[in-house]
């Protein structure tokens, strides 16, 4: 059961509550920003960084009906189904959990930044300014997802089972999805979210472009997006294809023992042949 988030950009009001909730949850220091570092709205900071795990992007675009629109999308780790970063990491500091989160263990990391290079979405960030730097990125609030049991009482009052369930539900969802009040961020099982996304498109084909971003991109991601404009206009990479990147690497890696046998046999064969030739030549003399 792999969980994900459905981001419906048509519901997003760009309030950035999720962006701040993320900083609060992860206790991230603020960035000293300049006046709107990017044109097209209020986007700030300009990009993801080791201090900014998630970012609402502001896009002044023309929508599919030809009208001007101001569209807010979101960038954070996509938590790929088959993550490039996990495939890349040479010490296993990154891993994909069963719940869908791609998590990072800083006690293993050596700081090689192959994960940064390999990420199709430009997500992981490095603490460049530190002398002992780590990689930072959205954790899918992995620790929240694991916890969240309700206390026995709140404000001196015992909680009933319904309240406890609600407490658990709100405390275990990722902080950004808890902060989102319009339903633009919907947390749930990825398969169910895909059904929901398809339903929304089917029910309201005028509102959406017929594309669930993340369903197939680079092998699929846990985070899924709906939009009323082409994702290209929102700055999403459009050329990733449907094949997961790690599948290329896996093919190469799986070849290792075969190469060991093949090259060994070939070398042995040649060697043996050359030696035989030499012997024959010697005998012939």
């Amino acid at each position: 059961m792999s969980r994900g988030v459905l981001v419906d950009t048509t519901l997003c009001t760009g309030c950035r509550g999720c962006q701040v909730a993320c900083k609060q949850q992860n206790k991230l220091p603020p960035e000293e920003t300049t006046f709107f570092a990017k044109a097209g709205g209020y986007q700030n900071p300009a990009d993801l960084s080791a201090r900014t795990y998630s970012l609402v992007t502001f896009n002044e675009v023309e929508n599919k009906n030809g009208h001007f629109d101001w569209v807010f999308a979101r960038r954070q780790c996509m938590h790929c189904e088959e993550p490039s970063c996990v495939s890349a990491c040479l010490v296993g500091a990154l891993s994909k959990t069963e719940s869908g989160a791609v998590v990072y263990d800083e006690t293993k990391c050596i700081g090689c930044r192959y994960c940064l290079l390999s990420c199709p979405f430009g997500v992981p960030s490095f603490e460049w300014e530190k002398t002992v730097p780590f990689v930072r990125k959205c954790t899918f609030c992995f620790t929240r997802q694991a916890g969240g049991d309700a206390p026995a009482t709140v404000n001196g009052k015992a909680l009933d089972s319904e309240q406890r369930a609600r407490h658990k539900e709100t405390q275990t969802k990722p902080a950004c999805t808890k902060a989102c009040h319009t339903g633009a961020l919907m947390f749930g099982e990825r398969e169910e979210l895909l059904v929901e996304a398809r339903n929304r498109i089917r029910k309201n084909p005028k509102r959406y472009v017929n594309h669930i971003y993340g369903e197939k991109e680079a092998g699929g991601t846990s985070w899924l997006y709906l939009a009323g404009v082409s994702f290209k206009k929102l700055g999403f990479p459009m050329h990733l294809g449907e094949r997961s990147f790690p599948s290329y690497a896996k093919a190469a890696k799986d070849g290792v023992p075969h190469v060991m046998l093949g090259v060994g046999a070939m070398l042995g064969g040649f060697y043996w042949y050359n030696q035989r030739c030499a012997e024959v030549a010697k005998k012939g003399e």
Binding site: P29, T33, F35, Y42, N44
Partner: peptide
């Protein structure tokens, strides 16, 4: 600081 960061 978290809000100053957004609209400085």
């Amino acid at each position: 600081p978290w809000l100053a960061e957004l609209v400085p």
